[in-house]
Design a binder for these strands. Structure first.
Length: 260
DNA sequence: ATGGTAGACATTCTA
């Protein structure tokens, strides 16, 4: 079973790339972020013709998350229960696999903008609410994968220039602590289960030739519960879509679970 | 210290 995550920065613009990518990478589930489309404008027909069911929490202009899957997802949950939020940032589905049912969750964590912004405390509050929610989800679904754009680079090796970025948003100690609190529930960064090239990143700023200079951050992650970690046989970032004309600023991340 | 690019919407906000 293969699962993946991709912040597409507008599904409207990136739909052809998503369809091409799925044809070349026929994963069982693809979590998407930054759809920037309301529910009634999602390209459900095109995705169905490509062989995928769509469960989504859409939103016009900003945010919006989805899980595309070969089999229809069930027990669809939108947003974080009890966390009052107009921004569509979380979507969970349950899928069947040979090792039992798996909870797949697509997350678009807040960016935070800067440490001085009012979006920064919102980001930390969102992470705290996510932590409490995932704790409950883990109790019900021991085989759980949380995939998405976390907008946090966990360690300095996930940052192209740690000195320049020190203390900045996406890297600051409170954000890293918030991500670690989530991981401390019993999750594992699938990417770091394996040897990886140095300077591996998943996001590069559109500005200042960020991709060409590999001036990036690793902020897109696949977090696996203990029960899934033992089945994970690979995890990689696919930089190819970032090389295309009119790319998303993020690259997909794929993990393979040996239970299928 | 500033602005650089991209997307959506409407000329500014978010990332």
């Amino acid at each position: 079973m293969k699962i993946a995550t991709w912040n597409v920065n507008s599904l409207k613009v990136r739909l052809p790339q998503v369809l091409d990518w799925l044809a070349a990478n026929p994963v069982d589930a693809l979590c998407l972020q930054e759809l920037k489309l309301p529910d009634d404008r999602l390209p459900l027909d095109a995705l169905r013709e490509a062989g995928y069911h769509t469960a989504a929490a859409g939103q016009s202009t900003y945010n919006g998350v989805a899980v595309l899957s070969r089999q229809p997802g069930r027990d669809v949950l939108r947003n974080i229960p009890g966390f009052d939020d107009a921004q569509q940032r979380l979507l969970a589905v349950t899928l069947d696999s040979p090792c039992g049912e798996i909870r797949i969750i697509s997350a678009y964590c807040p960016n935070g903008q800067s440490l001085e912004s009012d979006k920064y405390p919102y980001k930390l509050a969102w992470f705290a609410a996510l932590r409490d929610h995932i704790e409950q989800e883990l109790a019900r679904y021991p085989r759980l994968a949380l995939l998405g754009d976390f907008n946090v680079a966990p360690e300095d090796r996930d940052v192209h220039d740690p000195v320049k970025w020190e203390g900045q948003v996406l890297v600051s100690a409170p954000e890293r602590a918030a991500l670690q609190a989530l991981i401390d529930l019993g999750l594992h960064d699938a990417f770091r289960l394996f040897d990886q090239p140095e300077k591996s990143f998943s996001w590069w700023d559109y500005r200042q030739l960020g991709f060409r200079r590999n001036a990036g951050l690793r902020i897109d992650h696949i977090l696996l519960s203990d029960a899934l970690r033992e089945h994970c046989v690979s995890c990689a970032i696919d930089k190819e879509p970032r090389r295309l004309p009119q790319p998303s600023d993020h690259a997909p991340v794929i993990a393979e679970l040996g239970c299928a």
